[in-house]
């Protein structure tokens, strides 16, 4: 197992009645102490993968180990090692915020006194102290999410699983949650998260597995994944009128172009040696007699990587 805290081999799931594999032969190793991201569009198999690792989804074949424990053979043991934050709000509506944490501690065998202390401390740490005695109905979406994270780590799980942690959060709450997860991780918390936001995978994760249609297409650090694009700059050019011949023209005229992809109303150029790229693109457009309507320059993103791997956009 070495330093692998999660280890899967040939992990496969076919849901009853489905004629396709929701997850198809996944081999995964997640190291202790890292934030590991499963990135992909809806239906890529991310949630199913997380479901199998957290014992909720029974694999059709293959093995999955968490902390060396087979999650299918010994779910009760494996569940001692994991914390789960699901997409929906699963807080206990009949209890107060503080009680939600306290009873979670008791559930995992933490004594009454220690559970009380941990509940109080975590509410403070997660800036929910003044909500301790309030019903969970009183919390906003972002606060409920924070309380769920607090609850999931109270028993010090070896791995924290988060399914689309920031889906449905406003931008400010999302940033706050990223910061919080970063802090937890620096304190030693291993985190596996699923996301379809490439910024989330890029900013938060040490390593990212890109998934599509149940298969893992690539696995590396965000920087290494972006380096596979083979370009350091992405220029999107939109023109007035018919962009026919535009792609071929730029590929020929702009030095260092590694790839040209048609987009709505123009083309996207992947350029490797990008010094002074804007004047070069403008000059090339003038030479070809194209009238530029818009020009934007960006760096390659995980979205670019995903498009290169699958030919489609992440949001499709």
């Amino acid at each position: 197992m070495a330093d692998g805290i999660i280890h899967t081999e040939g992990l496969t799931k076919v849901y009853p009645g489905a004629d396709f594999k929701a997850v198809d032969g996944l081999d995964l190793r997640v190291r202790r102490g890292e934030i590991f991201g499963l990135l992909g569009p809806n239906g890529a198999g991310k949630t199913t993968t997380a479901g199998m690792l957290t014992t909720r989804v029974i694999p059709t074949s293959g093995t999955a180990l968490v902390g060396g424990i087979d999650v299918v053979a010994h779910p009760a043991l494996a569940k001692q090692l994991i914390g789960v934050v699901s997409q929906q709000n699963t807080l206990d509506r009949q209890l107060t915020c503080w009680e939600n944490l306290y009873f979670h501690g008791r559930l995992f065998g933490i004594g009454a006194k220690e559970s009380r202390r941990a509940a109080t401390d975590l509410l403070e740490q997660f800036q929910l102290g003044k909500w301790a005695d309030k019903s969970v109905y009183a919390l906003s979406g972002g606060m409920a999410q924070r309380l769920m994270v607090a609850r999931s780590i109270l028993h010090r799980p070896a791995v924290l699983f988060m399914d689309e942690p920031t889906a449905g959060l406003d931008p400010q709450s999302r940033l706050a949650l990223w910061e919080l997860l970063g802090e937890l991780n620096r304190a030693g918390q291993t985190i596996l998260l699923t996301t379809h936001y490439m910024e989330e995978a890029d900013q938060l994760c040490h390593r990212v597995a890109i998934m599509d249609r149940g298969r893992m297409l690539a696995l590396d650090t965000p920087a290494a994944l972006k380096a596979t694009v083979g370009a350091d700059t992405i220029v999107t050019v939109r023109t007035v009128g018919e962009p026919a011949g535009l792609a071929a023209h730029f590929e020929r005229e702009v030095e260092g172009t590694t790839r040209v992809r048609p987009v709505d109303g123009g083309v996207e150029l992947h350029i490797a040696r990008a010094d002074g790229v804007v004047p070069r693109v403008v000059a090339a457009a003038e030479r070809g007699g194209f009238h530029l309507a818009d020009l934007s320059v960006s760096e390659p993103t995980l979205e670019t990587v995903f498009i290169n791997l699958t030919g489609k956009e992440l949001r499709d």
């Binding site: 043991l77 001692q80 090692l81 065998g109 010090r156 304190a187 291993t190």
Partner: peptide
């Protein structure tokens, strides 16, 4: 400030006790 990390990577209790 996160609590001191005392993260166990093996289950603390048998399945029956837990």
């Amino acid at each position: 400030q996160p609590p001191a990390p005392t993260i166990a990577v093996t289950p603390l209790r048998s399945a029956a006790a837990a």
